[in-house]
């Protein structure tokens, strides 16, 4: 469609026009957010699950920024999630229980760690990246385990009590405030990410992912761009972790586990990486699948998760959104012929 337009109105072919085209809202997108808000009243009994979905979607969104857009492979993204969770949890435990301030602190702390570790991560090959990201997450987990006087160690951090959001909305046991809170944070950060990836900065990231040698020859400060997006993504993950700590009022070592880093990878490839919606659709699909499998086989659901990973890699490229795109193209083809 954009190509067709650019033939009629050459003005549309400018880069600014192309960016604006790509950033235009699709009606389905608006529909999704309206539905997500409506679920607050439609599914009042499943709000805790919905809250987890929103948090997982934010976490996957953060991974999407570095993996899908900048092409940085990470096996330790849980490091930032966990750090954010502990920061938010510890702040609330020691009396500073305003949720928004806690989230900002979690994001800032994780972002700082992201900035520092980005210089390590951006060196070397894919294998080195995998190892360093994994190493950073493991070091944090060891630290959280050893300093159990502060973090609660293997028993977890308890006694996290939260004040009302914005001084108005108290957290309740049904999770309606929690879901609304997480969903709003997800929505705001989604808007920011959307703006980011459709900006010249986002296009540059894609170019770096495609061929970093060429982009640096073109004069793009490749490393600076990657450091920036890594830091932003780390802050996103920290905020997601902070949300989990605040809404569940508990932090355990599990937030830094290897499984969490692997699961979020699965979420992203399930939904389709390199598309912001991939993270959200992936989180919905993953949590529903998890919920369903855990009900059938509480102990062995991981087997099916593994099988899903293998199947996606072998057969399905682009995840659910890729599949949807293919179907749409098929249907269009049929429509054109008829």
């Amino acid at each position: 469609m954009p190509q067709f337009l650019s033939m009629i109105w050459p003005g549309r072919a400018t880069s600014r026009g192309k960016l604006a085209d790509a950033a235009r809202w699709h009606p389905l997108e608006i529909g999704f957010w309206v539905l997500a808000l409506a679920l607050l009243w439609l599914l009042p009994t499943r709000l805790l699950l919905l809250n987890e979905i929103a948090i997982l979607a934010l976490f996957a969104l953060s991974l999407d920024l570095i993996l899908g857009y900048a092409g940085i492979v990470s096996l330790g993204h849980a490091a930032f999630f966990g750090l954010g969770a502990y920061i938010a949890g510890l702040l609330a435990r020691h009396g500073m229980n305003d949720p928004i301030l806690g989230l900002l602190a979690a994001g800032a702390g994780a972002g700082l760690l992201g900035l520092l570790s980005s210089f390590l991560v951006l060196r070397g090959t894919d294998l080195t990246k995998l190892m360093v990201t994994l190493g950073v997450a493991l070091i944090l987990r060891e630290l959280a385990n050893k300093f159990d006087a502060i973090t609660g160690g293997a028993d977890g951090l308890t006694g996290v009590t939260m004040g009302p959001v914005l001084g108005l909305f108290e957290f309740d046991i049904f999770g309606s405030t929690a879901y609304l809170y997480s969903l709003s944070v997800l929505f705001v950060l989604f808007l920011v990410a959307r703006q980011l990836v459709h900006s010249p900065f986002g296009l540059m990231l894609r170019a770096i992912k495609g061929n970093s040698l060429r982009t640096s020859a073109m004069g793009v400060p490749t490393n600076l761009r990657l450091v920036t997006i890594y830091t932003i993504a780390a802050a996103y993950a920290g905020i997601a972790g902070g949300l989990l700590a605040q809404t569940t009022q508990f932090v355990s070592l599990d937030v830094l586990d290897f499984h969490r880093s692997a699961d979020v990878l699965l979420v992203l490839v399930l939904g389709g990486s390199g598309l912001l919606w991939g993270a959200i659709i992936g989180a919905v699909a993953f949590k529903l699948m998890y919920d369903w499998l855990a009900a059938i086989t509480p102990q062995y659901w991981q087997f099916w998760v593994g099988m899903a990973l293998v199947a996606i890699v072998l057969f399905g490229r682009g995840g659910l959104l890729g599949l949807a795109g293919m179907l749409r193209d098929r249907l269009r083809g049929l429509g054109g012929r008829a």
């Binding site: 492979v73 995998l130 692997a262 990878l265 087997f303 998760v305 593994g306 990973l309 890699v313």
Partner: peptide, 10 residues
Amino acid sequence: VLFSIGLVFM
């Protein structure tokens, strides 16, 4: 990486 993590989980 995804493929081999999948195998490990299985």
